[in-house]
Amino acid sequence: TPAEQLLSKCPWKEYKSDSGKPYYYNSQTKESRWAKPKELEDLEGYQNTIV
């Protein structure tokens, strides 16, 4: 779907730490963070409005 294509192009991906806590990693900037990036939230919100 178009929304899945947008998400696949987003540099932010969700991973799980050893303790199972989700964290987010940007493959372009090599940045990681615990809080979900706004860019990823926006894309997921867009995906939910299409489905």
Rank of each mutant, 00 (worst) to 15 (best):
Q28H: 08
E14C: 12
T1Y: 02
N48E: 12
L40P: 09
K21G: 07
D42I: 09
Q28C: 06
K16T: 08
S32V: 12
K36G: 02
P2D: 15
N48K: 11
A35T: 14
E39N: 04
Y25T: 04
N48D: 04
E14H: 04
Y15A: 09
A3W: 08
W34M: 14
C10L: 06
Q47L: 08
Q47G: 10
T49I: 04
Y15F: 10
N48Q: 13
Y23F: 09
K21L: 13
E44Q: 07
G45E: 14
S27A: 06
A35F: 06
K38H: 00
Q47I: 08
Y24R: 01
Q5G: 10
N26A: 03
S19I: 00
S32Q: 10
D18T: 10
V51F: 15
N48F: 01
G45A: 14
L6W: 07
G20R: 01
W12G: 13
K30P: 05
P37H: 00
P37K: 01
E31V: 03
D18F: 07
N48A: 08
P22Y: 07
S8F: 06
E14Y: 02
S27Q: 03
E41N: 09
E14W: 05
P22H: 07
Q28V: 13
A3I: 10
Y15P: 00
A3Q: 15
P11A: 14
Q28Y: 07
K16L: 09
R33W: 05
T29I: 01
K38C: 06
C10R: 04
G45C: 09
K36A: 04
E39C: 02
W12S: 07
A35S: 13
Y24K: 05
K21M: 07
N26I: 00
K9C: 03
P37M: 01
Y46I: 11
G20H: 06
K13G: 02
P2G: 15
S17R: 03
L43Y: 14
L7M: 14
S17Y: 04
N26C: 00
T29D: 02
C10A: 06
K13P: 00
Y15N: 03
W34R: 13
D42G: 06
K36C: 03
K38W: 10
A35K: 14
D18V: 08
P11L: 07
K13I: 07
K16C: 00
Y46W: 12
S17E: 07
L43P: 07
P37D: 04
V51T: 05
Q47H: 05
S19L: 06
P37Q: 08
T29M: 03
T49E: 11
K30Q: 09
V51C: 07
L43H: 13
K9H: 07
L6F: 10
E44V: 06
N48M: 01
K16W: 10
A35C: 11
Y15M: 15
Y46D: 13
Y23C: 05
E41G: 07
Y23G: 03
S32M: 14
K9R: 12
W12L: 02
S32A: 06
R33L: 12
E41I: 06
Y46T: 13
K16M: 07
Y46M: 15
P2C: 06
C10K: 06
Y46P: 14
E4L: 07
T49Y: 06
T49R: 14
N26G: 00
C10M: 13
G45P: 12
S32R: 14
L7A: 14
W12M: 03
E41Q: 15
K30C: 15
W12T: 03
P37T: 02
P2V: 11
L7S: 15
S19C: 08
Y24F: 08
P37N: 01
Y23E: 01
K13F: 06
